[in-house]
Structure formats: C-alpha cells, structure tokens
Nucleic acid binder design. Structure first.
Lengths: 221, 221
DNA sequence: TCCAGCATACTTGTATACAAATATGCCTGT
DNA sequence: ACAGGCATATTTGTATACAAGTATGCTGGA
C-alpha cells in the first residue's frame, strides 16, 4: 500500500507542483507555458504534463487561449470582489447548516479552535490562514460536499491574490472577534442569524480588501 | 473562421459528446469506461479521449477509482439535497446582486421572460427548464462570473437527477408564481428580500424533490 | 525607414508504441 | 465443490513520433 492517499501517478505529481507554482506566483500571471521546456524541467514527457495542464484549466488556474496556447491568468482586481461574494454565499450556507446539525461536542471543538487561534493571533501572517481550521471544522459539520468543493476552489483562487489582501494586525483582531461571534451564533441554534453573520463578515472582509487595493493604487492622488 | 465558437479540437468534440451521454444517462451510472472501446466508437485515438475524460472527472461527471479505472458516478439521492442547497446559496447571491445592479431595461426583460414562460407553462416538461432563461438573465445582471460558473456546474449535476425531480403541473404553476415574486422582489430594490426569496424558493423545490423521492420509494409502507 | 510577404523554426494536437499494473479465468489440491 | 494461486489477457499510464497550425524573423521593395 502506498503512503500517499492520492493516486501517485506522474500526472498528479505534476499537477500538484504546477498548482503550487501558480498559487505562489512563481509562474507569473500572463506567462505562457511552453510544453517541451516545462516537461523537460519537470522530468516527464508531455503526456502527463498536458493532463495536469488540462486539469488546471478546468479549475481556472490556467487559461486556454483561442489561438491554442496556455497562459497563467492575469490578476484582475475586479474578480477579488466576485470571489469574496461567492465565498460569502457558500460560508453563509455552511454556517446555517452547521447551526442545525452541530452536536455539543462540535461546539466544544469550535471553541477549542477559537482558543488556539487567539493564542496564535500575533504569529499568523494572514487572517485567512488563521481562520482555515475553523472554517474546515464548520464545513465538516455542515456536511455538504458541494459547498466544501466550491469553498476549496474559491480558496485556491484567492491564494493568488494574497499580496492584495494581506492583513494588518487590526484586521486580524477583528477577524478573531468575528469568528467568536460566528461560533456563538452557531451555538445559539438560530440558523438565520448564523447565516447572516457569516455572510456579513465575509463581505466586510471584501470591503476591507477593496479599500486596501484602491488605497494602494490611488494613494498618489 | 469556424462556425463553432469553442476551439474545435477533437478533444472538445469528444468532451461534449461524452458529457451529453452522461447527463442523459445514456452512459449508465456505475458503468466503467474502457478507453480502447470508447476511442474506437468515437473514432479518435485514446489521447483526445483521455483529455475529455480527465476534464469530466474534474467536474465530477466521472469518477476516478483508486485502482485506476473510471466510472460514471452512481446516482445518490442524498446529494440531490446538497445540490439544491448550494444552488439556493448561489441563486440567492445572484438575486441580491441583480437587485442592486438591475436597470429599468433589465426589469423589463425579466418581465418579458416571465410572460413568455407563463404562455408556455403547460408545454414545459420540467420546472427547472422553464426557469432557465429567467435565471440566465438574472445571472447576467448579477455579473459575478464565479457564481455563474458554479451555477452551471450545479445545473449539470442536477440534470442527471431529472427523473427524480420531474415536476407536476401543480409544481410548475407554483414555480411560475415564485418566479413572479422573485422578479417583483428584484424590482422592488430590496436586496435582502430578493436574496431571501430566492433562497427560500429553491429550498422549497428541494423539499418537494425530497418528498417526491421518499414518497416514491416508501409508497408501499 | 518602414511595411509586406515569405520562409523557417517552433508549438500544439493527435496517433501509435510500449511497459507496468490490474482484472479475469483456469487449474490444482484439499 | 470450493478456495487459493498462477498464467493470461486487458487496461491504464507514459513516452515518442508525426502532421498541422502558429509565431518569428528575414529579405526585398517602396
């Protein structure tokens, strides 16, 4: 039995590596992928490389050009807003469902994660990352695999925009406070309140990000 | 210039054909795909066929088995409920955004679509299909490409479950009435109301579907 | 100097060949 | 008769070969 749970085929390895390079911007937005060179660099033939590329295209982490080339999608500030919005919708749904389905033990777990986050708040370099474990747990409680799937795709996309959405200490403290409120709402057993709270919090993060971006680009005026 | 807008490569044609066969259940759930036979049937080599298969896997319209085969996913009644829920979340977001962004002309268009649907209500064999044009227009107004993307994926998935969710005349009339309410809510300029209405309507459809399924399977009791 | 047209080099998409892994069926022993 | 194990056949994953399309740069002319 292999150690890795995923199918350890070459195409999968290439997919993971390529995805990493895209999310870290090691592959620069706008850059065109040339298969022969890439295949040589990754020590595989073009066949598994192409398989990985196609998969990334269908996740919108690569872009197929009409003429036939493949490029890393350009960073477009307008889509950040869109991503936050769908994330708000999905997390709102998960909060609602979690509220209905959570057992007392689940609530305990959530509070435990909160406490750990509070202890680490000054070390986290990113409010998003800080909340990861919390959202994962909420998603698990909500138990909707499609919501989880979409949430994962959105997270991947947003990863590319981390430079734009880097958080300040203030923002991080606020996020922690909002997470506390969210857990309280889930614990309270009022699905509507939990859903609304999750939605508003993410939209608040969107507004902060949009302000940060327009502030940075328009600072000279 | 080619007639088709998509890149007319063999892999794309195979993808479209395979997707069609999956959504119509021409390829039966649980069936295993054997590449050589399939390639021969579709008159292409295994290379573009595999490309199409991989794409379908990443859309969850095919399933990769741990051992290495590819099968058509089994129909699982439990996921219908999940699909309705995420659809509710996405449509709710689109209704909210549409409410904010709609111009008077947009509202006119929506009412026009409603009127056409009302005229055709007795011919539509499916409440989902009836509302297709309406939702497409709302999505266009909302202008969130990720929401549109997810909505499309959800629609594809649900297509496979049409047998379970076939609508009655009564259900169709109710849908039409709900669509009217939804358009009114969007026109009223109250985003929260529009969002809530869209959410509740889809969840209502979910409940109807769940009732229909459990009613059909548990009728003998 | 600048542009059109062409030839060349490169890239992509597809087909085929091959090796490793998996499934299938048969045979033997109890 | 049934289970275990081996041999065969099929299937998948990868590499390579080739054809068609696309971009690049060069030459000649105005």
């Amino acid at each position: 039995m292999p150690i890795t749970s995923a199918r350890n085929t070459g195409a999968h390895v290439v997919y993971a590596e390529l995805k990493r390079q895209i999310l870290t911007l090691e592959l620069k937005p706008g850059e065109r992928l040339k298969e022969p060179a890439m295949a040589a660099a990754l020590q595989v033939s073009r066949t598994p490389l192409r398989e990985a590329i196609r998969r990334l295209i269908s996740e919108d982490l690569l872009e197929q050009q009409p003429t036939g080339g493949v490029v890393v999608p350009v960073l477009d500030e307008a889509v950040i807003s869109e991503l936050y919005e769908v994330r708000a919708a999905v997390e709102s749904l998960m909060a609602r469902n979690a509220c209905v389905k959570a057992t007392p033990e689940d609530i305990e777990d959530l509070r435990g994660i909160l406490a750990r986050n509070a202890a680490l708040v000054e070390f986290a370099d990113d409010a998003m990352q800080q909340g990861m474990a919390l959202h994962a747990k909420i998603a698990a409680i909500a138990g909707n695999s499609w919501a989880r799937r979409f949430h994962g795709q959105i997270s991947s996309q947003m990863e590319r925009y981390r430079h734009y959405t880097n958080s300040t200490q203030e923002r991080r403290d606020q996020a922690l406070e909002q997470h506390r409120e969210l857990v309280d709402a889930i614990a309270s057993g009022n699905p509507e309140a939990a859903a609304g709270m999750a939605f508003d919090h993410v939209l608040g993060a969107r507004d902060a990000a949009v302000r940060a971006i327009s502030g940075a680009s328009g600072a000279a005026s």
